[in-house]
């Protein structure tokens, strides 16, 4: 019980004093995850849409593969990226290991399959409704992709949020490729892991509460924006 009240006090204390170390950790966490999710969205959405629309050999296999990748263990992804970026690895010359860039790469690998697989679902449903109309208007499948992504934008917000949830919560991959170096690659999840191993449970819990608060806030804000926009489109009867 005292652990919890201590934790809340620690968390409050950290926030109220605007601890500069903490601010650095939070900023890096957000920076890495937001960058990774942005890149994953740019790659994953068109891929998901193409798998939804085009018939090509191995399409079914690719769908299954994408869905399987959604559950990829972060530790294994971290290990693979580590091997790629380590000095002996194929990309060793770039010296990226233990940098935020390495963490972004690992998270992109983790999140892209999620965004691609969920986008495929959304686009496939919409395509079923739109297909004949768009064909009739003379749109090629290639031309239909941006149309479907735009018209599915509300559902796709949720897809991006799911990706962000995975990126910001995982610890295994960033720990391995980032190394949890103070003032360099320490993010919230790795900081929590470290504090726990040091036996500093109150601080770990405090960080945990902060992590929850942050991701919940981002989720809620995105949801509210999405809902507002959606309401404007499909029932703007209230008010003007």
């Amino acid at each position: 019980m005292t652990d919890f009240s201590d934790a809340f006090q620690a968390a409050l204390g950290l926030i109220v004093t605007l601890d500069s170390d903490l601010a650095e950790i939070v900023a890096l966490s957000l920076g890495v995850s937001l960058t990774a999710v942005t890149i994953a969205t740019v790659i994953g959405m068109p891929v998901g849409a193409m798998v939804a629309l085009f018939r090509f050999p191995g399409r079914h296999g690719l769908s299954v593969f994408l869905n399987a990748l959604m559950g990829l263990p972060p530790v294994v992804v971290g290990l693979i990226v580590y091997l790629m970026l380590s000095r002996m690895g194929p990309f060793g010359v770039f010296g990226l290991l233990f940098t935020p860039t390495a963490m972004i790469i690992a998270q992109v690998l983790l999140v892209t399959p999620i965004i691609a697989a969920l986008t495929r679902q959304v686009v496939e449903d919409l395509w079923r409704e739109y297909r004949e109309q768009l064909m009739s208007l003379g749109a090629s499948k290639m031309r239909a992709i941006p149309t479907l992504l735009w018209d599915g934008r509300f559902s796709l917000v949720t897809v991006v949020l799911a990706g962000f949830g995975r990126a910001s919560a995982e610890v295994g991959a960033v720990m391995i490729v980032g190394g949890n170096i103070d003032h360099a690659t320490r993010v919230m999840t790795t900081a929590i892991a470290l504090e726990v191993s040091k036996g500093n449970l109150a601080l770990a819990l405090g960080l945990g509460i902060l992590l929850i608060a942050l991701s919940a806030t981002i989720g809620a804000v995105a949801y509210i924006i999405k809902e507002r926009a959606e309401r404007r489109m499909s029932g703007g009867m209230l008010g003007g």
Partner: peptide, 29 residues
């Protein structure tokens, strides 16, 4: 193909404004 159009049994409305629905068709042409 470019000289035909079709109105379906169930209208398919793009998730856009009325104007943008027509504009989309013309834009494709």
């Amino acid at each position: 193909a470019a000289h035909q159009a079709m109105v379906f049994q169930r209208p398919v409305m793009l998730r856009r404004t009325v104007r943008a629905n027509v504009d989309y068709a013309l834009h494709l042409q």
